[in-house]
Amino acid sequence: MLLIHCPYCDETLPEAEFAYAGEAHIARPADPSALTDEEWRDFLFIRTNARGPHYERWRHIHGCGRFFNACRDTVSDRFLMTYKAGEERPAHATLEAAE
C-alpha cells in the first residue's frame, strides 16, 4: 500500500483512495483530423514504458476527485513527486532534490 500525496488536498493518503490514469503529458491534439494515421496511432497507443522515473496521471477518486500528475520510479515504485494537472513536467534535477 503506497502513500500518495494529493497536490490538491495537500495530504499524503493511502493508495486505495487513488486510481491510476495512464501516462501523463500526452495532450489530446487540438485538431485530430489534421493528424496522419501514424501520428494518431502514436497518440492512441504508443507509450514510454519507462524503466525508472515515469510521468503518469492519478486521480484522487475517493477524495477530492481531481486528476493530477506524478513522477514515479517504476523500479523502486517510489513516488518522486506529484504535481497539479496542467503544470510543467518537472526536470530531473528537481526530482533528485525531492528525493
Binding site: A21, R28, R59, R66, F67, A85, G86
Partner: peptide
C-alpha cells in the same frame, strides 16, 4: 463519469 471528469479536468479545463 470518470471519463467525463478526465476530459473536463485535463483536456478542456
Amino acid at each position: 463519469l470518470n471519463m467525463m471528469e478526465d476530459y473536463l479536468q485535463t483536456e478542456w479545463p
